[in-house]
Design a protein around this nucleic acid. Structure first.
Lengths: 149, 149
DNA sequence: TATTGACCTTCCCATGGTTGGAAGCCCCAC
DNA sequence: GTGGGGCTTCCAACCATGGGAAGGTCAATA
């Protein structure tokens, strides 16, 4: 099987297969007489393993460890579990960071009239960095009608 | 004020200040007779704006737009709001993706005994990609004591 | 005044994972 | 045998950031 077929079968692009080989994540593929890389079903199996681990957000270095454990018949499942738990912790941290951003930004967006006027609490907040500025109690558009200016 | 002082005052590293200048996010700073970059309080103000926007996860290209609106006295707050809402949507998507990963991985971790034995549903799942494999109902370690093997 | 140490300048490199493209060779079908 | 598509390698780019080298500058101190 050449690299294009292996790519299709595994869901890993040919470019990435070469990259994984170059960086040592996977062993160098065999070659045909004319220099084409040659892949077995086992190779494709491994590539699929890699793709699934990537889909779960594992970094290539982590996948390298996972592959080692996968191949090691005498592995201890505790090791795999530890690796996965570490990754879960990293995911949780990323999620928390993004949620903080989202929350702050949502608060700002809610406090912004979003009309034709230039006044904008979002820009104001980027300018002044006042966390405690009570943006959320600003009246929503139309809540308490008052004349513009 | 030289670049080091501007960096300290703004929270943007000197490296990044030069980078932002090079890529056109900020105008080229003035220079002293000896070639040192020279920053005003206004410049520092702008740099702080940039850092805060970065802290909220805005990409540099988005910040470029935000800066334009910031400087534009006749902007419409609706534009800023639209930009921020777009960014919130992107954040939400990222969060959802990461939560999917976390959830799947947590399920796998919970189904893994994590002991000295090699059997490991995490690796199994990476191998077989069976989403519907009912991993979660596997007995937890010690739930129903039975001899190893 | 001379030295020293901390700062500035530019330039290049690395990160991580992925994609794009160019130039040249190979394989298969017609 | 010819054409089109796939293979090979190599180089570059993305994004934001940090590291470091080589050389000039500033300010304080001996």
């Amino acid at each position: 099987m050449n690299i294009g077929q292996a790519a299709k079968a595994s869901g890993v692009s040919a470019k990435m297969i070469r990259y994984y080989e170059e960086t040592g994540l996977i062993p160098a593929a065999g070659r045909t007489a004319s220099g084409y890389r040659d892949y077995s079903d086992t190779d494709v199996h491994m590539l699929r393993f890699i793709r699934r681990a990537r889909d779960l957000g594992f970094a290539v270095a982590e996948i390298s460890e996972l592959l080692g454990l996968w191949r090691d018949e005498s592995r201890q499942s505790a090791e795999v579990k530890r690796l996965a738990q570490g990754h879960i912790a990293a995911l949780k941290k990323k999620i928390a960071d993004l949620q903080d951003m989202e929350q702050t930004l949502t608060m700002l967006v809610n406090s912004c009239q979003g009309d034709h006027r230039p006044h904008c609490p979002i820009l104001q907040r980027l300018e002044t960095d006042r966390e405690d500025e009570n943006l959320s109690i600003q009246p929503r558009a139309g809540a308490i009608p008052r004349p513009l200016q």
